[in-house]
Amino acid sequence: MNWNATIITHKGEKRIAVAVKRTEEHTAFIRGFVGSKWSQTLKTWHIPDTEENRAYFGLPLTSTFVPNEEGRAQITKFKSWLDSKRYSPNTVKTYIDAVKSFLVYFNHKKLEDITNQDLIQYNNDYILRNNYSESFQNQIVNALKLFFKITGSENFDVEKIERPKRAKKLPIVLSKEEVNRLIEVTGNLKHKTLLALIYSSGLRISEALNIKPKDVDSKRMLIHVKNAKGKKDRYTLLSHKVLVMMREYYQVYQPKMYLFEGTKGRMYSSRSAQAALQNAAVKAKITKRISLHTLRHSFATHLLESGTDLRFIQELLGHSSPKTTMIYTHVSSTSFKNITNPFDM
């Protein structure tokens, strides 16, 4: 995919302008970046000017985005500790990025001088000002609590850090007809098979991309999901229809290590998978704001509506607590079917 990225100042704020072709695929790709916006004035897409985004588009990094020498040394120690405790690579990256973001903001301070008040300032001036989500703020809090607990600081009281209140949002769910339409309009066999697998097995995107051909048990009609969230293995359902699609896909692409591979046999990227979904959503004329996780939500909701016991759904999804699975009772239409609307009376 071709693009041209440059640093710009838009409305007094540093941004990265990304010029891409005005196609459905390119639009879905750029929308995959958090904080992406279209400027009617500049006639270009632009995204937040962060170290990660600069690195992705090959733009030069600046010292502004690098913690001071003490911060870098402590981050190295923190990463070593996380690795020794066998935290997952995703968790390590999330925590390191969160700590790095915080320490960059207080480059002018020694670690021993950072206080809880600085975290409040960071929340107000950076997270809230840039309209980042509660989950992002929660990641920052989790990372900093662990970081300062490990590195130690007299002025930073870990026990007095409060997490933000989470908004009680219900998951967006597609109807069975919408899921069918979404998959039907997907012309690319790899994308079609991937989307169908995620929905029919209730997989997280990371789980789907980590699946290897040997994990598919066609005799028992199960998929072995290995080392999933929380380092837990589990089995989930394998659809007969999806198995037919997978066999056709396997004959055409002949993957070597992972079931879904990108260039040079590497694991297929989640960004490419997300772009495929958004492209399909446009073609299927689905106006809901969906992500790949929406397919997992839809899988669970449709199982519940068809009468599957909540405990089995919990097992299939790999939830540690039944409370997590209970959210689908709030989006299922089953409980409302026997209620007569007073307007219809």
Rank of each mutant, 00 (worst) to 15 (best):
K219A: 12
K79N: 12
K168D: 08
E51P: 06
T41K: 12
A5G: 03
R163P: 11
T301S: 04
Q274L: 00
A228W: 04
Q40W: 06
T76G: 11
Y253P: 07
Q278M: 14
H46V: 01
G58H: 01
L292R: 02
W81C: 02
A17S: 02
I47S: 10
E134L: 15
L209K: 03
K11F: 06
I183M: 07
F106Y: 04
I290Q: 00
N180C: 13
K37S: 04
T151Q: 13
E112D: 09
K231F: 00
L259M: 09
T324H: 15
M246R: 11
E305W: 10
I339C: 11
V216A: 09
V104Y: 00
S36T: 07
S175T: 15
P171V: 14
P89L: 13
K93E: 04
Y126F: 09
K79Q: 14
G152L: 04
V185G: 09
L82F: 00
I7P: 00
K337T: 06
K264M: 13
E315P: 15
F336A: 14
F336V: 12
T151V: 13
H293F: 02
S291C: 01
L303Y: 14
T115N: 06
D125H: 15
K285N: 14
R163D: 07
S135F: 06
K226L: 11
T329Y: 02
T340A: 15
K285S: 14
S135C: 07
E51A: 01
H240M: 09
F33W: 00
I47T: 12
Y253E: 08
G262S: 14
I223V: 12
T294I: 13
I75S: 04
Q274A: 05
V34Q: 06
K241E: 15
L237R: 08
N131V: 14
R22H: 10
T91I: 09
V34P: 04
L243W: 07
P164A: 01
T340R: 15
T301W: 05
W45H: 05
V331P: 09
A167C: 01
E112R: 07
W45D: 03
V282N: 10
S272K: 07
L144H: 09
E159V: 12
E51K: 04
I161Q: 03
T6W: 02
H293Y: 06
I114T: 03
K77M: 05
L303P: 13
V20A: 11
K264E: 13
S272P: 10
Q274I: 03
E261F: 08
N123E: 10
K192E: 06
P164M: 03
N188A: 04
W38Y: 06
E52C: 11
A5V: 00
S101N: 14
E51Y: 00
E305L: 10
T115W: 05
K176Q: 02
A143G: 08
V141I: 09
I114F: 02
F148S: 07
K37V: 01
K168Y: 08
L195C: 12
S332K: 04
N180M: 13
P67R: 00
I198T: 06
M257T: 15
K85C: 12
N4R: 04
R22S: 10
T50H: 05
R289K: 15
E184Q: 15
F147H: 05
T6A: 10
K285Q: 15
G307K: 08
E25D: 10
T91N: 12
W45F: 07
A284N: 02
H191A: 05
E154C: 07
S320D: 15
L42H: 06
S270D: 10
P60L: 04
